[in-house]
Amino acid sequence: MNFLMNLIWFVLGGFISFISWIVIGILWCLTIVGIPIGMQCFKFAVMAAVPFGREIRISESGTSLVLNIIWMLLGGLALAAEEVIMGVIFCMTIVGIPFGMQHFKHAKLALMPFGAEIYRVA
């Protein structure tokens, strides 16, 4: 079932999130200092491509607070706004609600990617 949902997700707009994360990751990787942030973006691009069957766990520690603040100012807010807008559009139909909920999950991830961990749900 996850395979089917992921396929529908990717065709109906998940590729937009995937491409957004990839572009932001490439932009961050253009600088030596931004490579760790870019690599994090590539990890989340995979999550944006196939989100069903995966969950996000966000750490409560404050160690990544500075990176999250820098991230929000230099790319995170734009990605979060994109995800919220797409989530609202999908939630306008009953059939699209599961897809909209995935976009809202990604919006939270777009705001605070550092300290977040992706894991598979059985």
Rank of each mutant, 00 (worst) to 15 (best):
I22F: 08
V46A: 10
I24N: 03
T63H: 13
V46Q: 08
G38V: 01
E55M: 08
I69S: 09
P36K: 11
L7H: 09
V23T: 10
E60L: 10
M47Q: 11
L30R: 09
W28T: 02
F42T: 01
C29S: 14
S20G: 06
L67N: 12
M5G: 05
L73S: 08
N6V: 07
I19E: 04
L73W: 10
V33I: 15
V50R: 09
K43R: 14
M39K: 12
I19S: 09
W21C: 03
M39V: 15
L4P: 03
G25F: 00
E60V: 08
G34K: 05
F18Q: 01
P36W: 11
G25M: 01
K43P: 00
L30T: 10
C29G: 11
I70R: 05
Q40M: 11
L7G: 14
E60F: 05
F42D: 01
I16P: 01
W28I: 00
L73C: 11
I69Y: 08
F44Y: 15
S61M: 06
P36H: 10
L4Y: 12
I37C: 10
K43C: 05
L74Q: 03
M47P: 00
W71M: 04
V23W: 05
P51G: 05
L7V: 13
L12A: 13
F18P: 01
G13E: 03
L73E: 02
R54A: 06
I22V: 14
W9L: 07
L27N: 07
V33Q: 04
F44M: 10
L74W: 09
G75L: 02
C41T: 03
G14A: 07
L77Y: 11
G62N: 13
I32N: 04
F44E: 00
L27I: 07
G25D: 01
P51M: 03
V23Y: 08
I35M: 06
G62Y: 10
G14E: 00
I19Q: 06
L77T: 13
C41S: 14
L67A: 13
F42P: 00
G53M: 04
L12I: 12
W28P: 00
C29I: 05
F52A: 06
G76V: 02
S59H: 06
F3T: 14
G38C: 03
G76W: 00
T31Y: 03
V66Q: 08
F52Y: 12
V66A: 15
P36S: 11
I32L: 14
S59N: 08
I32Y: 05
F44T: 00
L12F: 09
N6K: 13
V66G: 09
L27G: 04
I58S: 07
V33P: 02
L65A: 14
R57N: 10
S61Y: 06
V46D: 04
V50F: 08
F15I: 11
P51T: 02
V23E: 04
E60N: 15
G13D: 06
L12W: 10
L73I: 15
A48C: 08
G75Y: 00
L30K: 11
T63F: 13
L4W: 11
F42E: 00
G76A: 05
M39C: 14
I35W: 06
A48K: 02
G53F: 04
L77W: 15
I32D: 02
S61A: 07
V23A: 07
P36A: 13
T31L: 04
S64E: 15
V50W: 07
A49K: 06
F3V: 13
W28N: 10
F18G: 02
L4G: 09
I35V: 14
F52H: 03
I8N: 02
